[in-house]
């Protein structure tokens, strides 16, 4: 099972003007890993599909603000 958010740790200099962020997030959503969609994948109910934006739980990768984890999932 791949992870859909990764982090990298850029160099920060002691002479940088702003406090360092230390780790920087980037998204790696499901379409990077799935390949050609196999037949027979699990489906949402039509109503759930409409609200999730996809018929397929296997394609559902919601986003959250990485800088503000308390914010509701978008």
């Amino acid at each position: 099972m791949p992870t859909y958010r990764k982090w990298y740790y850029p160099y920060s200099s002691p002479f940088d003007p702003c406090p360092p962020l230390t780790r920087v997030p980037y998204e790696t959503p499901v379409q990077l890993y799935l390949g050609f969609q196999p037949p027979g994948m699990k489906q949402f109910s039509p109503l759930q599909a409409l609200s999730h934006g996809t018929l397929w739980p296997g394609l559902y990768t919601p986003y959250t603000d990485p800088y503000n984890p308390k914010k509701k999932e978008a």
Binding site: P29, V30, Q31, L34, Q37, S51, H52, G53, T54, L59, Y60, T61, P62, Y63, E73, A74
Partner: peptide, 12 residues
């Protein structure tokens, strides 16, 4: 968030 998920599906 809905619109973003559609971008994911379209990319797929």
């Amino acid at each position: 968030g809905f619109l973003r998920e559609r971008e994911v599906v379209h990319s797929q």
